[in-house]
Design a protein around this nucleic acid. Sequence first.
DNA 1: TATATACCCGACTATTTTAGTCAAGTTTAA
DNA 2: TTAAACTTGACTAAAATAGTCGGGTATATA
Lengths: 139, 139
Amino acid sequence: MKLSSKSRYAVMALTDLAKFNTKDPVTLRDISLRQGISLVYLEQLFLKLKKNNIVKSIRGKKGGYILNKKASEVKISDILLAVDEKIKTIGCKKNSKEGCNGRSSKCITHDFWEELEDHICDFFKKKKLEDLINQTRFN
Amino acid sequence: MKLSSKSRYAVMALTDLAKFNTKDPVTLRDISLRQGISLVYLEQLFLKLKKNNIVKSIRGKKGGYILNKKASEVKISDILLAVDEKIKTIGCKKNSKEGCNGRSSKCITHDFWEELEDHICDFFKKKKLEDLINQTRFN
DNA sequence: TATATACCCGACTATTTTAGTCAAGTTTAA
DNA sequence: TTAAACTTGACTAAAATAGTCGGGTATATA
Ligand code: FES
Ligand code: FES
């Protein structure tokens, strides 16, 4: 059970963006340098973030990205959804009657895993991008 | 972020074991049939569970497995530990000063991911095998 | 004491997922 | 006009995962 770098980078980059998005748009190049994430990889991520209305892009020279909402309104769960991070604790399909072992009913532990999934998702829904900016850590 | 089948099967099998472990040892064959998990795969899992003192094996004819402790004393976290399920939300090494991006300090989101890790582990520590037996679901 | 039942163990492989690159664009401010 | 910066899809190498195979060893019971 581990978090993908994709998600880690997405949250990292957006935290950076939120921190430096005072007036001018922030370029991916800057984020790449500050956070040590490959520029080409960031491009891939921001494409998705843009499609999901987390950020807006400003093209051309002096362009870059800005947040689409206030940092206090961006849930971490929104970010994860945008980059296709799937929280999947059950082994079966969500809206199927079939169990994870191919049987016709849900398995003996199914409810437990769903409870876990809710527990994790709650965490992501409660946390806002702003909460991350305000951590003491800075670099 | 998803749970491996290995862990799902381990918890499933142990729940089954706890449920049917009234007097005689339970054979892997029975668990395999009841839960629809490959017998050979179960052998692999129970080897680890045994090494970690979650279960005891009884060899020979009429043999099988029994729980080493009461179901109310077996934490789900113990089970996951036994089958090497790693909860890893951070991208860096735990006891290193190096960050997930190869830099010499921890990244901007490090503390957040550690908080998430604690949140998940707490869930597993609180839940006991017994809680799973008592779910309404039955098959 | 023979034997079937059931545990024990290492090695192996196919599949899937993940991380990250490459190449070739398009847009627009200066 | 041009350089900076975003856009897009395809591609690849590496790692993790799920699960099999084959050949053991131990022991209760008939
Ligand atoms: S996890 Fe849903 S049926 Fe097993
Ligand atoms: S997660 Fe630990 S440094 Fe980024």
